[in-house]
Design a binder for these strands. Structure first.
Lengths: 336, 336
DNA sequence: AAGGACATTTCAAACGTTTCCGTTAATTAA
DNA sequence: TTAATTAACGGAAACGTTTGAAATGTCCTT
């Protein structure tokens, strides 16, 4: 690998001058600067990121912290898409992305320690158990952090607008004449709370009574459980005309339960999902759902994190809400 | 951050001794070694990965190279799952994962240059355009590389067993009585070639004539295109009884085309997919498909890459084939 | 002509490791 | 007893940068 020294001997200047020229310092003449830049390009020079990091304490590396469990994380379409746009934006700003976990190799270490070890400049936390010790340690550490879909005191958070999503969905189904609405909600979490709050509020605004027996505790990303819950829900004496599923993926389970009971969507039961994943729009009928703006969430998270890193005065806590969009499919019947 | 020097002054030994103790060298007494290890733990010492990398030229970081385009990469379930298990295995061996691309920040650089810049110890190449200049540069470089689903001379490759997959699928559908089989294949690639070869061979072995008009060029991961191709295929005079789709995701497009033509699966047309993604098993009927062993592919890739790095004599080219498993759904009708 | 002001360049230390080699002391062999 | 071997540890250079201070040179001002 060609180093600063190689360039310096070839051009007959000191290493310091080369460094300054390449980093755009002003105390080097335009002539030599050009000469050195040219030589650097010719020789195929690239800075050694480790050496630079050692001196500057900046790695231009961002850590990604997420839950590493089956059925979650990378294989979760929502997270994958957010990560994808986060990554693209971060790269444009000159940052690379590294996965951060606990216990790398033989070393027992926490996620925070891992960050210290790798010296990441900042961390994005998403799709994880926000009550875990590891998250707690990160939040209270001195590394810039942006969380997604969870709000901590004194940390910047990017929130998908769950209240608005619920408001729009409820608005839509009530316009279609539904009043008896069930809601199979996801795991206990900030997201679930906000959606439920949005659900209640939207119903209240329309003078629709919420039947507490129809608020059912399910799980995100769990079609099997949703299948069972849907089935048991529909086996009761009184049936809702419309079911809100935890998310689009789980909704597949709900669809199947309905079908297996000899009913059909939307003729007998209307269904809405949440997320707007690709598959949901390939079903027939297409699922009526709320498309979360994963692109915008990822981009915003990256921009916030970078600005947190690069302009430390930005270190106040900020909560940024990203709106989504209702996708009108054919899974909700007009019963007016 | 606590450094070796901090430990050395506290314990009254030299930095060199601390380094050796912590790295398990033999020329340090058991007593002091224990004392130093204890101090290190107490003080919360973690090595500075940059400083270490600078000296040793080993970063314990692996690069991931993949196609960063819409509908591919991270949001591709096959790739996401492979990456997930790759990551887990790599971490167990003490390696972290960093995404590698071109043009990070203002710097214009190739993927290979990026690897040099970040000093990754090895690279996994997957889910990309294997004919690109960037891949070519990587393959001819001096960084350990493992490719997934593509074979280069002198580079280790992990191959999903596409021939066997096709063999099993053809075996299954012929057992169900199908002889008129169409195949909408994916983008021109090593994978597509192997599947097609497997398709032909399996048919030949059973004395089934392949109708060349029924070998159709489609695209992977493209439900819309598959929709159109399926529709035009079924509009011809002569119809196949069974259609092989490029993959499960695309198969959704095929399903919809069939439905939109007033036909149904499997009564009128049988369908098989490829991949075994989660969604395919939530459809009704469930899709009959071939489940690729993403877990095994990821694990094997990681192990091979690590051994390539850690025991340089392993640098011979190796091609490892990973078998999958037929998933019998309900999308193929028994027409015997 | 001497002094300062400025532009340009170099020196040298530092970042936190690893590792070769040398030193000392202790142990063993002859 | 002496020489040789070994065990345990320290010195110091090196990896490739960055950066403040010092050095050099040039030009302007008075």
């Amino acid at each position: 690998m060609v180093s600063l020294k190689d360039i310096s001997v070839r051009c007959g200047v000191s290493v310091a001058t080369v460094s300054k020229a390449l980093n755009g310092h002003k105390d080097v003449s335009a002539a030599t600067k050009e000469r050195l830049l040219k030589a650097a390009k010719e020789m195929g020079y690239f800075p050694n990121s480790q050496a630079r990091a050692l001196k500057t304490n900046r790695t231009y590396n961002l850590g990604v912290m997420y839950l590493d469990e089956a059925g979650s994380g990378l294989t979760h379409e929502f997270f994958a898409k957010v990560l994808d746009s986060f990554k693209t934006t971060a790269e444009t700003s000159g940052y690379d992305i590294t996965f951060i976990n606990r216990d790398v190799g033989r070393q027992k270490m926490s996620t925070y320690e891992h960050c210290k070890y790798r010296n990441v400049d900042g961390v994005i936390i998403a799709c994880t158990d926000f009550t875990s010790q590891d998250v707690y340690e990160m939040i209270n550490g001195d590394i810039p952090v942006v969380t997604i879909d969870h709000i901590f005191d004194c940390r910047t958070a990017i929130m998908s607008n769950n209240e608005k999503g619920m408001e729009e969905l409820i608005g839509y189904v009530t316009k279609m004449g539904h009043k008896n609405i069930a809601y199979i909600q996801g795991n206990k979490s900030a997201v679930a709370e906000r959606r439920l709050a949005g659900f209640y509020k939207a119903c209240m605004n329309r003078n629709i009574e919420v039947n507490p027996d129809w608020i059912i505790n399910g799980e995100y990303h769990n079609p099997d459980m949703t299948y069972e819950l849907t089935k048991s829900l529909l086996s009761r004496n009184e049936r809702p005309t419309c079911i809100f599923m935890p998310d689009d993926y789980s909704a597949m389970g709900g669809f199947n339960a309905i079908k297996d009971m000899g009913l059909s969507v939307p003729e007998d039961i209307s269904v809405v999902g949440y997320d707007g994943i690709a598959y949901s729009q390939l079903l027939s009928p297409k699922l009526t759902t709320y498309l979360q703006d994963t692109e915008q969430i990822g981009v915003t998270a990256a921009k916030q994190l970078v600005s947190l890193i690069e302009s430390p005065q930005t270190t106040f806590k900020e909560v940024i809400t990203v709106d989504g969009k209702l996708l009108e499919g054919g899974s909700v019947k007009d019963i007016n």
